[in-house]
């Protein structure tokens, strides 16, 4: 087949995938055995591409699931001590007003962030998704590299949006981080999806705290705290209520 015939066959093939019939194609396939063979190879190629796409999509969800598991497990331990912290804080306020004043003057939203921030660990599993460069730079803690890879990423999916948000947060570029986390949440709302949803909610709240925007952070914090199924529920519950109260009212 000539190169022109090949590209023409590909056009017919793409139209065929869209359900567009072509008498010209029927004729070509009836007359040209070579075209029939090339047609079969095109079918195989696209079958393989779709298989690879699905494999990578499942791989991306697998990483989300692993990350959710990693963040959920250690926080169970912290949760046990949460009651102690809260009770101790209340007693401290009543009994030691001086300490309370000190506490009030020294606690800030950014302080709450600094004391409670934990890095997000990106998965390192098999499955080369389209966010590979971003993920690899993230795993290497090359924050600038993450942002650069994101600029050149083929797809701005939730994974690389989220990881780039995290890179910005690590670099204290709070405004940029907040935009990216919000984009993950918006994407999910649009697609009725949940990929990186809970991660984005938690780290958006942390970003707002870091930027001393307690008013923006609190609705998210309250929502996560009220939802026992949220992946970061235990993590948020371990933040002393007194600190949150001060950050909220200061």
């Amino acid at each position: 087949m000539s190169p022109n015939q090949e590209t023409s066959l590909i056009d017919h093939f793409d139209n065929h995938l869209k359900g567009i019939a072509s008498p010209e194609l029927e004729q070509l396939l009836a007359q040209d055995p070579e075209a029939v063979q090339e047609w079969a190879r095109l079918q195989l190629a696209v079958e393989g591409i779709k298989e690879l796409g699905l494999y990578e999509q499942v791989g991306a969800v697998r990483r989300t699931w692993q990350q959710q598991q990693e963040t959920a497990t250690p926080s169970i331990v912290r949760r046990l001590s949460h009651g102690y912290f809260r009770a101790a804080a209340v007693i401290a306020i009543v009994a030691f007003s001086g300490i309370a004043v000190y506490k009030y003057t020294t606690t800030s939203a950014a302080g709450v962030y600094a004391e409670n921030y934990i890095s997000f660990q990106s998965g390192t599993q098999r499955g080369t998704g389209m966010a590979d460069d971003v993920r690899q730079a993230y795993q290497e803690k090359n924050w600038a590299g993450v942002i650069e890879a994101f600029k050149h990423a083929a797809v701005h999916n939730n994974e690389n949006l989220f990881l780039t948000g995290m890179a910005n947060l690590e670099l204290k570029r709070y405004a940029e981080a907040a935009v990216l986390f919000q984009q993950v949440i918006d994407n999910n709302a649009k697609a009725h999806d949940t990929l990186f949803e809970e991660d984005a909610e938690y780290y958006l709240a942390m970003t707002q705290l870091a930027a001393n925007h307690a008013k923006e952070a609190m609705p998210l914090i309250d929502r996560i705290k009220a939802d026992p199924h949220h992946a970061y529920h235990d993590q948020v519950k371990k933040i002393p209520s007194i600190d949150l109260w001060i950050a909220r009212h200061k």
Partner: peptide
């Protein structure tokens, strides 16, 4: 297609 990611995550969980 719109629910596929949620479905996969559910299968994993």
């Amino acid at each position: 297609e719109r629910q596929l990611n949620s479905a996969i995550l559910f299968i994993y969980k």
